[in-house]
Amino acid sequence: MLPDDILIRTRTARTGMLIREVFEECLKARLQSLPFCDEEDKVVGRVTLKYIINRSIVPEYMAELAHVLGREMSAFEDMEARLKQVFDNSVEAYVQEPHAAIDSSTPLMKALAIMEHHDTSYLFVVDEGRYGGTLTIPGIAMWMSRLDKGR
């Protein structure tokens, strides 16, 4: 069973939500990702800041040729304008496959093992399809720190 105060609770992303709101929610909670839920509140995907930023600014072909890019390129010039436009986009176009998830009864050690297995620093906590919060390495570290202080 995960300790009550270890999870970071956030809003979920859903159809119609703007990228601006995703950014605000992620920055407020200091998270990189939010679960994406359908109309029935079930977690069906995720949106991540990394994917939104890369997809908006760095096309696939540019990443492929990262080493050869010059310092002065037209693509770099309108970067800020492109970024600003992204904030008004709806989140649906940026939804990825669901992230690894656990339920709230999962022992912390197993949760850490699952994180390691998936090479990730966070897991969504989902009970019967509904989002309950996010377990992160910084969140676990803060919880451990609180344990240490209360010793």
Partner: peptide
Amino acid sequence: ERRRHVMSLSEREAIT
């Protein structure tokens, strides 16, 4: 100007 940008691509950097 745009052609100059292409000329600034560094093909040597492609050799990793």
